[in-house]
Design a protein around this nucleic acid. Sequence first.
DNA 1: CCTTATTGGAACAGTCGTGTTCCGAAAAAG
DNA 2: CTTTTTCGGAACACGACTGTTCCAATAAGG
Lengths: 190, 190
Amino acid sequence: MDTAAPTGARARTRRAILDAALSVLSKNVGASLADIAAEAGVGRTTIHRHFPERSDLLAALGTHLLDQIEAATQRARLEEGPAMEALDRVCQEYFELGEGLWFAFENPQITEWTDWESETESDRALARVVERGHAEGTIDPELPAAWVVQMLWAVLYAAWQHTRENSASRHTAMTLCLRTLRKSIAATGA
Amino acid sequence: MDTAAPTGARARTRRAILDAALSVLSKNVGASLADIAAEAGVGRTTIHRHFPERSDLLAALGTHLLDQIEAATQRARLEEGPAMEALDRVCQEYFELGEGLWFAFENPQITEWTDWESETESDRALARVVERGHAEGTIDPELPAAWVVQMLWAVLYAAWQHTRENSASRHTAMTLCLRTLRKSIAATGA
DNA sequence: CCTTATTGGAACAGTCGTGTTCCGAAAAAG
DNA sequence: CTTTTTCGGAACACGACTGTTCCAATAAGG
């Protein structure tokens, strides 16, 4: 029983393997199972015990990450308050996800590993907020919702890179991120 | 003689291999040489004749792409005219590079394949333009040059993705890209 | 404390990609 | 047209990774 009886021990090593997989695959998508096992401090055999095939591990990792993204989206309570503030909140929640978010971002193929649809519920929720912003008159009406969502991801990515390449603090990067996103999508003061 | 006597034929297949490598590796970084050979309409043996080892092919591809980026940067004549317009020009030049640009963008390891420094001449030229914009008072002084450069890449990336996922025309995407970049980095009308 | 679940390691077969060699065919160059 | 260059395909050895099996050691749980 894999999911039926998650005894403490079993669940713990499962997490250790998933964490190690994320860490190792982030640096090198083609890394071997032996690498992941080493990082997890676990025998290679144990990995196969939890995930019969490599693809099973990838699928589990994908589902894990996408679940985290969905959870972060929910925490942002997108349907509450002004659209602009909702986008601020979701940016911060996403940013807190850290490494996992960028692994998902840089490997869109992840949706092929899992049984997820290519357009997630999060995507739709974001689009709805932007449309609310259009209705409020706070978001530039000349920018399509899909484009604004794309920008949100792009700016978040820039912020993440900024922390890595310019050793900027998370807080500094987030401040720049929010300031820039706001300016770029705000309705022109007409 | 590899580079000494580039007879027409040899140079042509070399290009075909590099083009195929870009196309195939863009979809799957771990693709095999056989895949690349097939895409190029060439025998696998021929690839090894031009590039003894896989790493040689990657290095050649990396150099090829980075050369194209440098050339595009020069065409933009960054040192001429107002900073904002210079950034507009460079955005358009980069965007025209298409697939190759994103391969380089998504595989920063590319600099490890080649003998390039991690910070290219293009990077420095872009930073100088931004600082000129700061001096002119046209670029938001609260945004560090490194951040503005990061934004430029991020917005370009968003535009590229926009054409692929939302089947937007290159022109539409470019318009959104330039409009958004301008707004995001412009000095606040103080 | 005793039973059961979980693990680590060794060993093995099978697959896939790489790099090399060799030879005949085809294309280019003169 | 003849010579030289370039190419394609087959065959091979080699190494790396995968997935499996088996057994002994260890940790967890009752």
